[in-house]
Design a protein around this nucleic acid. Sequence first.
DNA 1: CATGAATGAGGGTTCATTCAT
DNA 2: GATGAATGAACCCTCATTCAT
Lengths: 204, 204, 204, 204
Amino acid sequence: MPEERPRRRQARGERRMAEILDAAAGVFAEAGFERATTNAIAAAAGISPGSLYQFFPNKPALAQALADRFVTEMDTAHRTAFEGADFAALPLDELLDRVVDPILAFNVDNPGFKALFARPDMPRDLAAAAQPIQGALLGRIERLLAARAPGTPEPERARNARVLVQVFQGLVPLVVAAPEEERPALTVEVKRVLGGYLRTIEGR
Amino acid sequence: MPEERPRRRQARGERRMAEILDAAAGVFAEAGFERATTNAIAAAAGISPGSLYQFFPNKPALAQALADRFVTEMDTAHRTAFEGADFAALPLDELLDRVVDPILAFNVDNPGFKALFARPDMPRDLAAAAQPIQGALLGRIERLLAARAPGTPEPERARNARVLVQVFQGLVPLVVAAPEEERPALTVEVKRVLGGYLRTIEGR
Amino acid sequence: MPEERPRRRQARGERRMAEILDAAAGVFAEAGFERATTNAIAAAAGISPGSLYQFFPNKPALAQALADRFVTEMDTAHRTAFEGADFAALPLDELLDRVVDPILAFNVDNPGFKALFARPDMPRDLAAAAQPIQGALLGRIERLLAARAPGTPEPERARNARVLVQVFQGLVPLVVAAPEEERPALTVEVKRVLGGYLRTIEGR
Amino acid sequence: MPEERPRRRQARGERRMAEILDAAAGVFAEAGFERATTNAIAAAAGISPGSLYQFFPNKPALAQALADRFVTEMDTAHRTAFEGADFAALPLDELLDRVVDPILAFNVDNPGFKALFARPDMPRDLAAAAQPIQGALLGRIERLLAARAPGTPEPERARNARVLVQVFQGLVPLVVAAPEEERPALTVEVKRVLGGYLRTIEGR
DNA sequence: CATGAATGAGGGTTCATTCAT
DNA sequence: GATGAATGAACCCTCATTCAT
């Protein structure tokens, strides 16, 4: 089957790249961009330094690819969280459940994500990779606010959205770092914070 | 006057150390711990690399000293914010004004602080330098909560305190990074977030 | 026919080796010995790096084989130039025509030759591959001088031969690098130089 | 004497640079550009690798500086050889003595020169450093030919000059590589070659 | 005490060579 | 025999730290 060959080979390459990215995520998260050595990443991926460079041309590119992968996954998580419901009509508590739970779950399942982007020692343009989703998230929140608090003037709405995102992202590490059994309670608190703020917005 | 000599010398040394720390704050904030070179710090401080090592035995120690200085200053700011009022009796809005404003002001005035501690590429034990104030702050908040919401059981109160601190610290960068004219409005939002959450706590 | 197999295989192998050497000649000439990568040579030859090592055990051996091939061809060219005439009796101009033209023609047709040997970044022992023909050429010139200037004492004759060879080889690149239309005129000059020197030798 | 400090320091730096260049000349000549390691050069210069980079930003720059130094020295040698005599009137033999001897002497005293420029594995733009003197030399020869053989038409004169330079440069390595005691005899031969050719030019 | 040249270990990257398929 | 992914030694260069002046 001559068709199989390239596919299988490419599949192997893809798997390798994924393995390397997994290893890189760990090492970067552990040591930071600068202190992470490409040799350490290669070792963590169970390959030789030379092999690493067959997949990524250099260290920043590796970090970039990692960022891109995270961004894609995160975006998917966001999309899922914000899809398929009439957010204007939903009771506040239900809304929070629908949105907060999946995003929090994603972050718990991908602890490397925050660990990586919280590291501003990365090349600035790399951190910029996160901006698209950040922007998309902000847009979603703004639309949500427009639906639920239509009376709010535009500049204030934008500010509200930024505050909401910032608060949520500030709380994510707390939940992620917490021991398993603490997380449900903390999740409740997250929703209380967001809910408390949203109520002041909607109640204007 | 044999007494004078050492004192003057020490005074000069203290000044030098302060200058070096100022320079280091800038360079670290600009470049991150790893990318900041000791030579760059020495140059920024207007001294030679060799002289730098007369005051600090190595790069981590320099960062540590910087962290310590920040911590001390931050603690002072906190102390001021939490002193001299009966927090149990104060209306919520007034309470928030009294506590939030000075701490926010300190952070705006010392942008290096967050810039430094937001850089987890620093040796982990270094970031730990912040833990004392963190702990002190938590203690203060807990006491405040105990006074204002005495009904809350202990483990939940601790959780509430941690959430409050985390939310606040998550919002600090937003305020610090905002242009001057945006800050008052953002400060209001910060208080709304904290107030909203506190109300749900007090209102139990 | 069990006899056929190996022969055909060998023939194929020879062709492959020749193809590889062709590719190597190009890459070496272009990039020099060190900067030429075996992978580039394999690619230029249209084979995989692994296959290359089926024919040549390592990079120097490849260069060596290339040198050997060049040397053989060069020797053939020399042999042709120096065969079938009574060099003792020939008028000087005719002698120069008979000797210079074919060797120059060979060099023009095989620009890789000089390009390769003019690169002393090659392992020294490799350049030594050229020494046999060099020696043969010297011998031929010495015999020629012995015939045409029998009075010259031996050590001087050897010196004369070396000078002649060196002068000629020094001029070859000039001719090879010159645009097509300049070559005839330059060839005339080459002969004038050699002729001028030879005349002083013969005229002693 | 505050004036002394910078001067002495600069002087020391200049000496260091010269020492490094000397070491580099040896290592480059021995191993070629690619195979020469910066660590080997540093070791040959009796310094650490790091120190080398305080004087030259990278390996090509080191080679470039070396080339520039050689070019300057060579140009001086040429200038001396071609100065202070009426070349139009001089008998041919005397002319050759005046020009050939000093340039040959320079090359014998600076064996690294040829060894370096004969290595086309150097970055091409680096070898280009030699072109200015090459051009200057050609100009000098052309002027000399114009004076001594005014009848020659321009394009031919340029060709004659190129041939002369090429012949001479082709013979230089022979003289440089020869054992001390052989050099006088070889020098005579060089002059005979050049003289023989010049005679055919002047005698037109 | 200050200086700044010197040190050298260590990191990113390349490429000749090998080997499982 | 062919393939091309994998290997790992070695190279260029940086920068924290030292030390002679």
